[in-house]
């Protein structure tokens, strides 16, 4: 009873603080804008902890944040090994492979208007398909180690990056292309000096979408077969052992990895496309 009242008070308190901050005179400052969602997040964690404790919620259904935190610390080395297997070897290898392939195909297709008109719709179609379903097929072809996961990721990120790059290369105006013609500039100078820089906002949009897909692909693909290491593997086996706090710990690592990668790409995007209206 007391715990529930405490939880309600914490929630109300956190909300009140945020209302004051959001509607106050300092609300435009960057530090305040970061503080508000952080307060919101902390409030949720405290309320969560109190309610789990108060209602004695079965840890199988919903573990307390404190036990998840404990697991994160205790199982550090194993979490790190899982991270390396899934994120570094599986997701990032596939991301780079798929991205480079997509970029190459986009440049090749760019030389032919015919190819571009064919690839955009077909690529967009393929990007909407549940490619994660090809995971068992890749495991059969490439074995259960990280190579099959990288292959799944490569296929998953290929289409969004391809479609966005092709769309970006198309995006120059006739006037800009005419200007290049008045300089007698051939295909390659026009590509390198005009069309590629101009395509960067689109390319980064594709790269950002791809980071989430890479993570999902690597983890879910491990449900279909994996050596005894890897985040997807750990999630499904911990689940079988009813060690839900370990599951959540892995999810938190995945969340941090996902936000980290997304954030890194966004930072690079800010530097490269500093000139775009959305960044100014």
């Amino acid at each position: 009873m007391i715990a529930t009242i405490c939880a309600l008070l914490v929630w109300a308190g956190g909300w009140w603080i945020n209302v004051r901050l959001a509607n106050g005179p300092q609300s435009h400052r960057a530090s305040v804008r970061v503080l508000i969602p952080v307060i919101f997040g902390i409030t949720i964690i405290i309320v969560w902890e109190l309610l789990v404790w108060a209602y004695d919620i079965n840890p199988v259904i919903l573990p307390a944040p404190s036990s998840i935190g404990g697991r994160l610390i205790v199982e550090g080395p194993r979490l790190w090994a899982d991270f390396q297997q899934t994120i570094v070897k599986g997701a990032m290898t596939g991301y780079v492979l798929g991205g480079v392939a997509a970029f190459g195909v986009a440049i090749l297709a760019d030389r032919s208007d015919f190819l571009t008109r064919g690839i955009l719709p077909v690529g967009g179609f393929m990007a909407a398909l549940p490619i994660v379903g090809t995971a068992p097929i890749f495991v059969k072809w490439l074995g259960s180690d990280w190579e099959s996961k990288a292959a799944v990721v490569a296929v998953m990120v290929f289409f969004p990056i391809l479609v966005n790059t092709v769309a970006g290369l198309k995006d120059t105006t006739a006037m800009q292309r005419d200007l290049m013609r008045t300089y007698g500039a051939g295909y390659w100078p026009t590509l390198l000096k005009l069309r590629l820089p101009s395509a960067m906002p689109f390319i980064f949009n594709g790269l950002k979408i791809a980071t989430t897909l890479a993570l999902i692909g690597a983890i879910v693909a491990e449900f279909f077969g994996s050596p005894t290491v890897g985040m997807g593997f750990r999630i499904s086996t911990s689940f079988g052992q009813l060690a839900l706090d370990m599951v959540w710990a892995e999810i938190i690592i995945a969340a941090l990895a996902g936000s980290g990668l997304y954030g890194a790409i966004t930072l690079i995007e800010k530097r490269v496309t500093f000139w775009h209206p959305s960044q100014r």
């Binding site: 006037m175 800009q176 005419d178 008045t182 820089p197 101009s198 000139w275």
Partner: peptide
């Protein structure tokens, strides 16, 4: 042999 000036400045923002 010539320089062309268009209706819009067409400068590269980057």
């Amino acid at each position: 042999a010539y320089g062309y000036v268009f209706q819009a400045a067409g400068l590269y923002p980057w």
